[in-house]
Amino acid sequence: MKNLALFDLDHTLLPIDSDYEWGQFLVRIGAVDPVEFKRSNDAFFAQYQAGTLDPVEYLEFALGTLARFPRPQLDAMHAQFMREVIEPALLPQARKLLQDHLDAGDLVCIITATNRFVTAPIAKALGVEHLIAAVPEEDEHGNLTGKLLGSPTSGPGKVTHTHAWLEQIGTPLDGFGRSHFYSDSHNDIPLLSVVTHPVATNPNAALSAHATSLGWPLLQLFND
């Protein structure tokens, strides 16, 4: 029977937060107002770390920023972002963990609260075909409208989106011999709680305490 391996992205497979770093990148290249954008970006990031982030409010902010630029310019900026920020953060230990599951024949998927525009090229660079991420609306020319399609892929939303994806491919969660989910954040406890093999990966303090109390394994992917 086939196994399932789900992975969070930021601070799990990456030692950075791609969403936050994308914002910092926009500031650095002068694409957004440095003072106002950094203030908002930092505030949302602090809310995320504290577990108080309103995902819809944040996604409207992030996608609204993307909508300011025509798609060719966005794609060029993202290619630069990949070269300068993401590629140096694609570390061998994360690649090996993914490859171990792929070599075992597991169905591998990255599931992240970060939007698909930012994360799809990252998943591709990691060699992962399947990605569940917040979906930005596009117009007929491929430009982003600033709106979110569907619901956020964060917190309990990760459970909902995982079940919906598995229904599409024809195998429910309990149809796998083993289901793994690797995450660093207490925000992902809902999905960690429904798989057969939750792994607290580079866990923050809240997740570390929760995982320890339940006997879940802790994996320090970047600090060994």
Rank of each mutant, 00 (worst) to 15 (best):
R95T: 13
Y48V: 01
V32Y: 06
V56K: 13
T12C: 04
D100T: 10
E137N: 10
D8F: 00
H101I: 11
D10H: 03
G177F: 14
F69Y: 10
A43K: 05
E84M: 09
L9Y: 01
P34V: 12
E87I: 13
P152T: 02
P203K: 05
A134C: 08
A123R: 01
G127W: 09
S193L: 09
L4G: 05
P15N: 04
R71E: 09
E60T: 15
Q80I: 09
T114Q: 00
E84S: 14
L144R: 07
N187C: 10
A211L: 14
A46D: 06
A62V: 02
F45N: 08
D33Q: 10
R28D: 09
R95P: 08
L144Q: 05
M82Y: 01
V56S: 04
L63N: 00
H210R: 13
I29R: 15
G51D: 08
A209D: 07
E140G: 13
K38S: 11
V35W: 09
K124Q: 13
P15L: 02
P88S: 07
P198S: 07
L166T: 11
S179I: 02
D8E: 00
M82G: 01
L148V: 07
L9C: 02
A164I: 07
G215M: 11
A79F: 06
H11S: 12
Q73C: 15
V32F: 14
Q220T: 10
Q168H: 11
L14S: 11
A79Q: 12
Q220V: 03
R28F: 06
V56P: 02
S179T: 14
L66P: 02
A89H: 06
E137P: 05
E21F: 04
V199M: 15
D42S: 11
I169M: 11
Q73L: 14
S151T: 15
G30A: 14
N223H: 10
A211D: 13
S179R: 03
G170S: 08
S179M: 03
I16N: 00
D139V: 08
A67H: 05
P72K: 08
P198Q: 13
D174N: 12
G175Q: 15
